[in-house]
């Protein structure tokens, strides 16, 4: 490191004589110049982390694992399915159209996920709330990007039945190596 200096010694030398104008004005100009220089120093730092552009959407998306019930309580249910990676928008929505009449799937639930660009397949999971207990629901699934563009894939109509109050259906359990509720 260099030699120490008196912190109160000005590091910018001002001229002793001012050929024109007023000294304070010159000081102001110098200060403005320093400000501009230092400001530029900081603002022009390269930003390493960049927002990557969206991926090109897949031309064809397929459901590779049909939708099924992951779990259900008396008033909630989660369904899941797997597709080939639709690419496009990093943020995607799984969409479930459902209802108690297979001819009227007018209710909709959306599940927000973030695509993993490196994965060949994508798991969609959607939670439905405010269901009725011991009631059979019919549903079909689709998906879309966060910009609203559909992935162009839709399942057939499936069904599940919610359990009675206080009961639950668990089709996907935590791994057996983990503690389980008694």
């Amino acid at each position: 490191m260099g030699a120490a200096h008196d912190p109160h010694t000005p590091l910018v030398a001002f001229p002793r004589e001012t050929p024109i104008g007023v000294c304070s004005m010159n000081r102001l100009l110098v200060k403005l110049a320093i400000t501009a220089a230092a400001g530029g120093l900081l603002v022009l730092n390269p930003v390493v982390a960049q927002i990557p552009p969206p991926q090109k959407r897949a031309e064809h998306v397929e459901i590779t694992k049909s939708p099924e019930l992951e779990s259900a309580h008396d008033d909630t249910a989660i369904v899941r399915w797997t597709t080939t990676n639709p690419r496009g928008d990093d943020e995607h929505f799984g969409i479930v159209h459902y209802g108690t009449d297979p001819e009227d799937l007018s209710q909709t639930a959306k599940g927000h996920i973030r695509l993993n660009r490196n994965h060949p397949e994508t798991i969609f999971r959607v939670r439905m709330q405010d269901l009725k207990p011991q009631t059979t629901y019919y549903y079909k699934v689709t998906s879309m990007g966060s910009g609203g563009k559909s992935d162009g894939v839709e399942s057939t109509v499936n069904q599940f039945t919610t359990p009675a109050p206080g009961e639950r259906i668990v089709n996907y359990r935590a791994d057996s190596s983990l503690p389980q509720p008694k």
Binding site: G94, H112, R114, R125, R127, Q129, D175, S177, P179
Partner: peptide, 27 residues
């Protein structure tokens, strides 16, 4: 450990994770 209380905000819930199927060792 084996009980997760209700979410403070259920809207816009990220469903990318939440049921990963990892073993204890994998965690």
């Amino acid at each position: 450990v084996d009980c997760w209380p209700m979410k403070e905000v259920l809207n816009n819930l990220d469903m990318t994770t939440g049921m990963l199927g990892l073993t204890d060792q994998e965690e």
